[in-house]
């Protein structure tokens, strides 16, 4: 069941352990019609063209500075997103999703019509705590300014029928306050994938 406006507010008034937290809410209008608007934060990871080699998801932690740069804007500054550029941003808001709720993240179509595609993990798990990392890509032919504080996506909350142990205790992504780079290298499957691989010329 999708939560309506009244229940969203009621969830935000509960005791801390069970509270739906979306902070800072700059305007009550952000909660409207069964969704909560979230805004673009000030911190970004800019992906660059690597001078040394491709990204290997098995060993991404090595040489990350070669293809990514962390940029933090002061409040009031803006950033340019060039055509075909990908940056990771984060929501201005920090979230705490109660154990009996989950959320879907929906990019605003007004941005899509300018060529700005806002993607993210789409589903926010019960028990998640932290800001959401947003993948921002400019698919148009014209650079676009990104202004922190802009409403960038909507969260639609659903109830979960049976309670789970909660993402915060299980997941790899709990608690970030800014954008986080992919943690693919931590996947437990890599040992098996390596076992499947045939030797190549460069090994």
């Amino acid at each position: 069941m999708v939560l309506g406006e009244q229940e969203l507010w009621e969830r935000m008034d509960r005791r801390l352990e069970d509270r739906l937290v979306v902070t800072p809410l700059l305007s009550a209008k952000q909660v409207s019609g069964g969704s909560v608007d979230v805004r673009l934060g000030t911190e970004f990871i800019v992906l660059k063209r690597s001078a040394r080699g491709p990204i290997n998801p098995m060993t991404m932690s090595e040489g990350a500075a070669d293809y990514q740069e962390r940029v933090v804007l002061d409040v009031g500054q803006r950033m340019v997103l060039h055509p075909n550029q990908l940056v990771l941003g984060a929501t201005l808001e920090f979230l705490q999703i109660p154990a009996d709720l989950m959320a879907y993240v929906i990019g605003r179509s007004s941005w899509g019509r300018l060529g700005l595609i806002v993607a993210t993990a789409i589903m926010v798990q019960p028990g998640y705590r932290g800001s959401l990392t947003l993948e921002l890509a400019n698919l148009g032919d014209t650079p676009i300014y990104l202004y922190p504080g802009t409403r960038i996506a909507q969260l639609v909350f659903h109830t979960v029928s049976s309670l789970t142990a909660g993402y915060a205790q299980q997941g790899k992504y709990s608690g970030p306050v800014g954008p986080e780079f992919s943690k693919l290298a931590q996947d437990p499957d890599w040992k098996n994938i390596q076992g499947l691989a045939l030797p190549t010329d460069d090994e």
């Binding site: 935000m12 801390l16 937290v21 902070t23 809410l25 009550a28 920090f94």
Partner: peptide, 8 residues
């Protein structure tokens, strides 16, 4: 959690 006031 990030410290906050009432209703976010």
């Amino acid at each position: 959690v990030v410290p906050h006031g009432s209703r976010g």
